Simulated assay, not measured.
Amino acid sequence: MNVPKPLRVVLLGKAGNGKSSLANTIFGNTVFKVSNFDSSFCVSESQTRQVNGKSLTLIDTPGLLAPDISEEDIKREMVRCITECSPGPHAVLIVLKVEKFTEHEQAVISQIYQHFSEEVLTHAVVVFTHGDQLPEGMTIQEYVNQSEGLSDLVQKCGGRCHVFDNRYWKNGEQDDYRSNKFQVTQLLNNIDDILRLNRGGHYTNSTLQEVEKEIQTEADRIRKSSRNMSNEDILKQAKLNTIKKHLEGGKKAWRWDFIGFGVLAGLAVIAAAWAC
């Protein structure tokens, strides 16, 4: 019996917007560590769980434009994120707060374009947190329509948007709309729509394709020499070995077109973290 592969979903957004808490809400359990400080820097992390009968791999990322965090650190972790979701994410969650959409939020969206390109919006859903700030009786679509910037973003994402409250909507006392369980179901339906619209494919670009090819080549080599390793362990080791080869200068460095140059040196920290 073939086990369906998990759907890879990346969470992107500003520091303090509640990405880790949102991931825990989707999983229905505390899986990701949540920082109590908006500017706290974390590393990219992926976890896989069953949600409503679907296997999901959620990839949490550090906050974009985090204060006191160097752009190089952010780039380094984005590289780790992209390697984690190789060969590419099936869906991207752009996480925003229910608050005024300012130039700072627009800068976060611009940085997402820088890391992935605007084409990633064909696989994206805008997800709002802090739903308790949503005026009573108002839907998130109605809220979005009040802002030209938000409306334009959601429109580019195919009209896909949801609202959660990781703190106050945990029980089942709210009406259907203001319920995390209801929103999770609707979010999964939207991810199904993304898969259908993209014919089941994931987002990719030339760099992701090159990364995946190298990982699979290394995985085949490990599989032949280590027959007792599980496929999961083989894949983890293949990712680590691929990065090490580039760090050691044995192969031509990847062209990280979507984040610029000078990032590869930072991968030493990633390799060390994976070795732990």
Rank of each mutant, 00 (worst) to 15 (best):
residue 70 S to E: 09
residue 254 W to F: 12
residue 56 L to V: 09
residue 232 E to K: 15
residue 106 Q to V: 11
residue 199 R to P: 02
residue 229 M to G: 00
residue 97 K to M: 11
residue 108 V to A: 04
residue 232 E to V: 11
residue 152 D to K: 15
residue 84 E to P: 00
residue 142 E to A: 15
residue 24 N to R: 06
residue 139 T to M: 04
residue 160 R to N: 06
residue 189 N to H: 10
residue 216 Q to S: 11
residue 27 F to W: 13
residue 216 Q to M: 10
residue 127 V to N: 11
residue 239 K to T: 06
residue 220 D to V: 01
residue 81 C to M: 14
residue 179 S to N: 14
residue 127 V to C: 15
residue 276 C to R: 13
residue 57 T to R: 14
residue 163 V to C: 12
residue 142 E to K: 14
residue 204 T to A: 09
residue 87 P to W: 07
residue 31 V to S: 11
residue 36 N to T: 09
residue 102 T to P: 10
residue 223 R to V: 00
residue 244 K to H: 07
residue 15 A to E: 03
residue 158 G to P: 04
residue 129 T to M: 10
residue 38 D to K: 15
residue 122 T to H: 15
residue 68 D to I: 03
residue 218 E to N: 00
residue 4 P to T: 12
residue 198 N to E: 12
residue 179 S to D: 05
residue 89 P to M: 14
residue 54 K to W: 08
residue 249 G to K: 06
residue 85 C to N: 04
residue 238 A to M: 01
residue 38 D to H: 10
residue 46 S to H: 08
residue 58 L to Y: 07
residue 103 E to G: 08
residue 118 E to C: 08
residue 195 L to T: 03
residue 26 I to P: 02
residue 237 Q to W: 06
residue 30 T to R: 06
residue 143 Y to G: 05
residue 271 A to N: 06
residue 160 R to G: 04
residue 155 Q to W: 03
residue 107 A to L: 07
residue 266 G to D: 11
residue 5 K to H: 07
residue 219 A to N: 00
residue 223 R to P: 00
residue 147 S to M: 10
residue 242 T to C: 09
residue 46 S to F: 08
residue 201 G to F: 05
residue 108 V to G: 03
residue 106 Q to G: 10
residue 92 V to Q: 05
residue 111 Q to F: 03
residue 5 K to G: 07
residue 209 Q to T: 12
residue 228 N to A: 10
residue 194 I to L: 14
residue 210 E to C: 12
residue 44 S to F: 08
residue 97 K to E: 14
residue 261 F to V: 07
residue 149 G to P: 00
residue 234 I to Y: 01
residue 217 T to G: 08
residue 197 L to K: 14
residue 186 Q to G: 01
residue 154 V to I: 06
residue 155 Q to A: 15
residue 28 G to N: 06
residue 118 E to P: 00
residue 86 S to Y: 08
residue 160 R to F: 07
residue 4 P to M: 08
residue 231 N to K: 09
residue 95 V to A: 02
residue 201 G to S: 14
residue 233 D to K: 13
residue 86 S to V: 12
residue 133 Q to M: 05
residue 275 A to H: 11
residue 33 K to P: 00
residue 167 R to F: 04
residue 28 G to W: 05
residue 159 G to T: 07
residue 99 E to D: 15
residue 245 K to F: 01
residue 148 E to Q: 13
residue 219 A to V: 00
residue 51 V to T: 12
residue 41 F to Q: 08
residue 114 Q to D: 13
residue 3 V to I: 12
residue 171 N to T: 13
